[in-house]
């Protein structure tokens, strides 16, 4: 019975004692991408061109050519994505060891705060208070920020671009420092279009999540859905980016295993 652990898991999956939650948004041409000031290069949206669909270009088969940025749709940020992570070992998606692709998650619910204040900022102080209530964030976990932001997908409120920039919740530098150095997280998983807050350009330092996470070899998961379906502790996230040579990230299917309630 050397593989009893996985046999148990297989049994639990069959019985429903372990359930899968899809944390992925549908990759479609109109799924929004991060918008940078126009003078910068832009993130290509998802595009799909039919090659054939049981027609003169392929009578019995259907397939499409697709194109997109590495950071389009529900996607994974590798450390190399940010300048701070440029010298981190194994910093591209093809080099990240496979063991990193499956990790437990702790879900921090800031949906109420975010509903009131789209610019809600998660601070170290907020996290430490949270730990008092829910318990300590364990090491080598994805820290998932539940904002219910995914419910805004398809509306202008998702990227929430105003004349002074985007408005969506995210952490400040103190929070990210805390996650990385004091709680040794795998990475930060969010429902918004970036791990950083919409206004994080104006933070000090700017874009702390990208900067600190990737500078320390941690990952990002963005544009997730269904974080409200996960328990605070105990979910297992499977997030395997495409093995793109030297890739800075990748669209991917993200799923979570949770233990069922009624079995």
């Amino acid at each position: 019975m050397s593989n009893s652990l996985l046999s148990d898991l297989a049994g639990a999956l069959v019985s429903g004692r372990v359930q899968m939650v899809d944390l992925t948004n549908t990759l479609s041409p109109d799924f929004p991408v991060i918008v940078l000031p126009p003078e910068f290069g832009q993130c290509a949206p998802f595009r799909m061109e039919k090659v054939s669909r049981y027609d003169e270009n392929g009578p019995a088969w259907y397939w499409n050519n697709i194109s997109m940025n590495e950071h389009t749709g529900t996607h994974f940020d590798a450390p190399a994505h940010w300048v701070t992570g440029k010298d981190v070992p194994s910093n591209t998606v093809d080099a990240i060891p496979a063991r990193e692709f499956m990790a437990p998650a702790v879900v921090i619910d800031i949906s109420a705060e975010s509903a009131v204040d789209p610019d809600f900022v998660v601070t170290r102080e907020f996290l430490t208070k949270w730990e008092v209530e829910f318990g300590r964030i364990p090491p080598r976990h994805w820290i998932a920020l539940r904002t219910d932001w995914y419910k805004r997908v398809g509306t202008a409120d998702y990227v929430n671009m105003q004349e002074d920039g985007a408005h969506s919740p995210g952490p400040d530098a103190s929070a990210v420092e805390f996650m990385v150095h004091e709680r040794d997280c795998i990475g930060l998983a969010v429902e918004t279009v970036g791990t950083d807050a919409g206004q994080a350009m104006h933070f000090n330092p700017p874009l702390p999540a990208h900067s600190i996470l990737h500078g320390n070899g941690r990952f990002g998961l963005q544009c997730l859905t269904n974080l409200d379906k996960l328990p605070t502790f105990g979910a297992m996230i499977i997030a395997c980016p495409l093995k793109i040579e030297g890739g800075s990230g990748s669209p991917l299917r993200v799923v979570a295993m949770i233990e069922g309630k009624n079995v």
Partner: peptide
């Protein structure tokens, strides 16, 4: 209408 998107 987004002319970069065939679907659109």
């Amino acid at each position: 209408l987004n002319v970069t998107d065939t679907n659109s």
